[in-house]
Amino acid sequence: METNAGIPIERTMKPYLIGIVLAVILTAIAFGIVATGALPRQTALVVIAALAVVQIFVHLRFFLHIDFKSTPRENLVALAFAVVLICIMVGGSLWIMFDLYHRMMV
């Protein structure tokens, strides 16, 4: 992202227009899967999750302007670290709680 005086400059609307178009498509597909019931439940869940992940990237890239060239390195590292930790914390919690559920119905 271009900056001056430490403040980001948004020159054009292009990223936002691309972003919203992509987001609408991804959202429509996800909602469509549920509305039409076209896929079996397990598959549908996986597809919806995948669509969400893609849409998060779309938002990060086109609305938050995060890329490997212009985003300060410390922001990228913080984001990567947050992602890793979230995976550990959420993954670990789900593993523990579902393990407990199987053993103790808690």
Binding site: M89, G92, S93, I96, M97, L100, V106
Partner: peptide
């Protein structure tokens, strides 16, 4: 309710 979730979150 799920009491073990508190313990999980607290110790996280």
């Amino acid at each position: 309710g799920n009491m073990m979730n508190y313990i999980n979150l607290f110790w996280l």
